[in-house]
């Protein structure tokens, strides 16, 4: 009789505190259950408290992987985008979140990993490793990445310049990039305030664009960034 073959989980020796920060994450039944309930509650809260209105949902591709690129005014941006994707994709939808902020402690990591399903993004060192993680992630059918190319929340309402990361990710790759614009985030939850206020939010999702025809040169990267920056701004009707 042949002996059985076992397949232990790769992270079996990793303590919980570390596995929360790790990525890709091992799928766990409990985490999925909590996240599903949290997603439902989040959607209810967004609809009632913030009267979230989503425009252009039909632009979301029905299948394949894609990237949502949005202006960044508050933590509500992530939550709005999470509420805009189909509920069944919630476990395949990964908002890129600054590792130095969202994964700085064990409780924060737990919220980021379990509830938000965040991808820990290393803002330092130009994010080369994190970008490699993103492109690997997007090779799997049906994965959604949420990215805020400004890299940080705006305090004035004016959109910051897009950092090169999104350009390096998109230029020359067969990836659908959807520009999004959220209006009202700054009034609802300005940086530094503890809790959001009941202000209206308006999310516009633009049409997908693919940059596979470009090469990976620095010029193309700049062009992609400028193009996406303009598309996002145009969705918002100029400035917020």
């Amino acid at each position: 009789m042949d002996t059985w073959k076992y397949h232990p989980s790769p992270g079996i020796d990793t303590p919980v505190s570390e596995s929360l920060r790790g990525f890709p994450r091992e799928p766990g039944m409990l985490a999925y259950a909590i996240r599903s309930v949290a997603a439902l509650l989040l959607r209810a809260w967004m609809r009632t408290y913030h009267r979230l209105h989503i425009e252009g949902r039909e632009n979301l591709p029905a299948k394949g992987s894609y990237v949502l690129v949005c202006n960044h005014t508050s933590h509500l941006d992530t939550l709005c985008l999470l509420s805009s994707v189909p509920l069944r994709s919630i476990h395949n939808c990964f908002p890129a979140a600054a590792a130095d902020y969202f994964f700085s402690s064990v409780p924060r990591s737990a919220v980021s990993a379990v509830l938000i399903n965040a991808l820990p993004f290393d803002r330092k060192a130009k994010g080369a490793r994190s970008l490699a993680l993103c492109s690997a992630l997007l090779k799997t059918e049906g994965n959604i990445l949420i990215l805020f190319p400004e890299g940080t929340r705006t305090t004035t309402g004016a959109m910051g310049r897009f950092r090169s990361g999104i350009g390096r990710l998109a230029a020359g790759s067969d990836l659908d990039i959807l520009p999004c614009h959220l209006e009202g985030g700054l009034r609802a939850w300005p940086k530094g305030k503890l809790l959001p206020r009941p202000r209206r939010l308006h999310l516009r999702i633009g049409q997908a664009k693919n940059y596979r025809h470009l090469d990976r040169s620095p010029e193309s990267v700049k062009a992609v960034c400028a193009d996406l920056e303009e598309r996002v701004a145009r969705l918002g009707g100029g400035a917020e």
Binding site: T3, D13, P15, V16
Partner: peptide, 13 residues
């Protein structure tokens, strides 16, 4: 030993 691991997990430090 049959599975080939040292500890069953890393829950308790």
């Amino acid at each position: 030993r049959d599975i080939g691991i040292k500890d069953m997990g890393a829950t308790i430090h």
